[in-house]
Design a protein around this nucleic acid. Structure first.
Lengths: 340, 340
DNA sequence: GTGAAAGCGCTAACAC
DNA sequence: GTGTTAGCGCTTTCAC
């Protein structure tokens, strides 16, 4: 009987037909997938763990691009994709324990995330995308340091040295405010930490004291956050000539706030983002493009490529600096620093 | 031991701690979720079946909105969301059989979809969103007939009577071409069929012979499809004053094609869409807005509301006509029909 | 508070 | 080509 469902080639088509028909007549709904999974030790699905609320994943274009790539990889392999309901607020790790999956993809979570810890305890393969960087686990990501350093060089060449920064959440606690150097250094989100450190290094190279640079953090990743954060930076130091945002979403909000203040971009204020989402492209935003779809696909492939591997594999994808219409030379400062 | 994991209150914290620690030391990775599911008869997840490739779902803003709403509902209930890898090309129904879920949400599939049939055979609750309309199954959707009739009236009031139509796929077979009346009538996608029929009725009311109206179909739901379909209609009948598209994505493509031909919108050509996605809003598209997020949420709630119900429940959400900047009076025809 | 045992529904292995 | 059986790992029940 099992054969009729699972091994059509092992018996005659006629018999198979008869068995199946009889089964149906008896009201047999087909093999129970859960029981089958228990027996075969295969769930036929990949679990996805996200930093954010499940629903958020569909609101951030970069996350959607990642999901698309991951879905592509799963589809190719005939695997399902299980979105694990692990909200950052709820510390409830049970959802991770209950997930019937053959492996996990973890997308951009803090290094102290309890859900991540729960995932790593499960005896299934895991691939991390972006963060955290774990020695023992496969990882797909970009070179954040070199990517943002390229952006910093672009701004430095334009003549900016009085800058402000808007970044995404640095820890699991909410801090919608300025960020101390200590908090920057100890951020639990490796990506943000690296970007800030690389910016500090780059601007230190042209004599900027990083301690004087206003850095503002936002917990929620929305354009509204970008607006209010930009306002906070500009209120603190109206003299800044460039506002570096660590995501396009934040940068788009910053553009809105600049417009509200009558600041022309880029004449009065340069604004930059990170990610290269379609909306940023339409807005002509200066940003760093990263291959979000490729990241998802690579993560999925890594997980599903069951090739036994000794040491954990690391995939680093390329990024590209997009010099858009939102960056230009600062009005006055350029004269002082790179005068004729 | 089971109690230590599942019923923390049934034993002393001290004992619980000891048990758990011993378990860990022995390398016990925690209860197997699949075995637990088999025993408890609960998978803790909802399956989602889509018309399209899994990855496509992330490219259509309307689908993304639906997913967001569904994810929201699942999250609230602590349920996972399993994306079932059922591509329309592959007739492989196995993925449906293998899905370890407590119920299915089916999003906009043709009435003869084999995956749908497989879902309905499984002994779990199911909710259909949009299509098909099944007597015995819960459904969330809109009133397509009245929605598109409102749009038709808008165009008729403006004075349009020479129109063309671009619609989405009408069956599982690819037909990137004009659509016969017979094909319109027998379309396996209830939503498209209803919209076309309602348009036919509305325009028949002002003396338009529907058989003379060029209707073009596209299998792929992309702006590129909208472009080429608009071109096909305009090549056939350059005299049309309005192009009705059954989705915003198609309409946005049509706008591109109109621009390419030097047709001013709406002076030379009126273009309308359907859905009310953000991009349409930005483009000022005349369209019908439907609450995509609400649809997803309603579908999820319906499925997870385990209230025993006798007859299948039907949820019909409201739509809104958005009169944008892409619809206006036709140049010449308006003089003839509604002249001063 | 603890231990033993039945059984969820299936598949794989083996004997016929 | 067919029938039987063990056991996947868990939870629940019941006896202690």
């Amino acid at each position: 009987m099992s054969n009729a469902y699972n091994r059509p080639d092992q018996l005659s088509p006629e018999l198979r037909r008869r068995v199946l028909e009889t089964a149906r007549r008896l009201g047999y709904p087909g093999p129970d997938p859960v029981a089958r999974s228990l027996r075969t030790r295969k769930a036929g699905a990949v679990g996805l763990l996200l930093t954010e609320n499940l629903s958020y994943a569909f609101r951030d274009p970069a996350a959607v691009g990642f999901l698309e790539g991951l879905a592509l990889a799963c589809e190719d392999a005939g695997q399902g994709l299980l979105l694990v309901p692990a909200s950052p607020e709820r510390e409830d790790v049970a959802a991770v324990h209950r997930a019937g999956v053959d492996g996990f993809v973890v997308y951009s979570v803090p290094d102290d995330d309890p859900h991540l810890a729960a995932v790593l305890e499960r005896p299934v393969p895991t691939v991390v995308c972006d963060q955290p960087e774990l020695e023992t686990v496969d990882r797909v990501g970009i070179d954040d340091r070199s990517a943002i350093t390229g952006l910093a060089r672009h701004l430095i060449e334009l003549g900016h040295h009085r800058i402000g920064v808007v970044c995404m959440r640095l820890g699991r606690d909410r801090n919608d405010d300025f960020v101390t150097l200590e908090r920057q250094r100890s951020a639990h989100f490796h990506v943000q930490r690296t970007r800030l450190a690389a910016l500090a290094d780059a601007f230190a190279g042209v004599g900027v004291d990083w301690a004087t640079v206003p850095v503002v953090e936002r917990f929620d990743h929305t354009t509204a956050s970008g607006e209010s954060a930009a306002a906070q930076v500009l209120d603190r130091d109206p003299e800044i000539t460039a506002l570096i945002c660590t995501s396009d979403i934040l940068a788009l909000g910053a553009l809105t706030e600049a417009g509200r203040r009558g600041l022309r971009v880029p004449q009065d204020l340069t604004v930059t983002g990170f990610d290269g989402i379609p909306e940023a492209d339409r807005a002509g935003l200066t940003t760093v493009r990263q291959p979000v779809l490729e990241k998802g696909r690579a993560a999925g492939r890594l997980l599903l490529d069951n090739a036994e591997h000794g040491r954990p594999r690391k995939v680093t994808l390329d990024t590209e600096l997009i010099a858009g219409r939102t960056s230009g030379a600062p009005r006055a400062a350029a004269q002082i620093w790179y005068g004729p």
